[in-house]
């Protein structure tokens, strides 16, 4: 009610200069929105267009010669199916481990009465600002036997300090101390309190953090590029990279793929289709998750 009144008030007070100003902002946002949207739209539309029209550079934001050949080719490609399977495995187990470790770190860090809190927090946050770098990390993984092991896609990066801080901040502000004290009086220990109260009450933030981690795994490329060498373990991103091109290609996949695609003229639209197929799972989740993502970032932006 009050909000409505206010916006009415504002509208009433708008002078001509204000109207001009606000109008130009709307206009600018339309332009910005289009600039952001058109590349994505063009990729999607091209993937559904005829290879001829794409090859001739005629496609902008409407499909020409609608067809789904490119998608049939993408889905018929064994390597891409393998990549999808691997990526799903890495994403599932990786995220499971992520969330487990993150909750275990975040909850004690949210407890005001935990004497070691500050010192452990410093131990954690220092790693956000300084790291050993890629070469010592590589040597460590080699010693741990993680090179060319599927575990290298799951275990490293299991705890993102940033996500842990977001979760801790949520717990600090959303779990009133009274619950803990009441539970303590009833003889509840910390482990039980974590599993029976903290986790259920933190569901909103856990969902957000799960999505952050899952998208990270889904999109991850560099670790696979550096550490994996057998094709059977490659995630989708490696196969995509070999098809979408660039200098740092791995192995002979490009040639094999082109043989599988058979017709050279389909190469262009297959690339477009591939981009769409990779982005789609995340984009489909996006509208439903947007509100929660935004909340997650907002919780994280509270300094702590």
């Amino acid at each position: 009610m009050t909000i409505k009144n206010r916006s009415k008030n504002n509208a009433f007070r708008l002078t001509r200069g204000d109207k001009l100003f606000v109008g130009s902002i709307y206009f600018m946002l339309v332009i910005i929105g289009l600039v952001l949207l058109i590349p994505m739209l063009n990729v999607i539309v091209s993937s559904f267009s005829s290879p001829k029209a794409v090859g001739a550079g005629k496609v902008t934001i409407f499909p020409i010669g609608f067809n789904i050949e490119a998608y049939k080719m993408v889905l018929a490609n064994n390597k891409l199916v393998l990549g999808f399977t691997n990526t799903i495995i890495y994403t599932f187990f990786g995220t499971l481990l992520n969330i487990f470790i993150t909750v275990l770190a975040a909850y004690p860090m949210s407890r005001e009465d935990f004497a070691a809190k500050n010192i452990i927090m410093k131990f954690f946050t220092f790693t956000m600002y300084f790291s050993g770098g890629i070469i010592p990390t590589y040597l460590l993984y080699k010693n741990l036997g993680l090179v060319d092991s599927r575990l290298v896609m799951i275990i490293p990066g299991a705890l993102s300090i940033y996500n842990m801080i977001v979760m801790r901040t949520f717990m600090q502000t959303n779990l009133p101390n009274e619950i803990l004290e009441a539970a303590k009086i009833d003889g509840c220990n910390d482990f039980r309190f974590l599993s029976q109260f903290v986790v259920p009450l933190s569901k909103p933030i856990i969902a957000v953090i799960i999505m952050f981690y899952a998208i990270g795994h889904w999109n991850s490329y560099f670790d696979a590029y550096v550490y994996l060498s057998s094709e059977s373990k490659y995630p989708l991103s490696i196969f995509i990279q070999t098809i979408l091109g660039g200098l740092v290609t791995k192995g002979e996949t490009v040639k094999n793929y082109e043989a599988a695609a058979q017709q050279e003229q389909y190469k262009d639209i297959v690339q477009y289709a591939l981009i769409v197929v990779t982005c789609l799972p995340v984009w489909v989740c996006c509208p439903f998750m947007q509100k929660y993502f935004v909340q997650g970032v907002m919780v994280g932006s509270v300094k702590g």
Partner: peptide, 28 residues
């Protein structure tokens, strides 16, 4: 909503998009 979408594109795919979109022969 539109402005958030590109954030979820992976680096590999982003660079792939740059490659196909800026390809001088066919890219928009």
């Amino acid at each position: 909503f539109i402005s958030y979408l590109p954030n979820f594109i992976s680096t590999v795919v982003l660079v792939g998009m740059v490659n196909v979109l800026f390809g001088s022969r066919t890219g928009l």
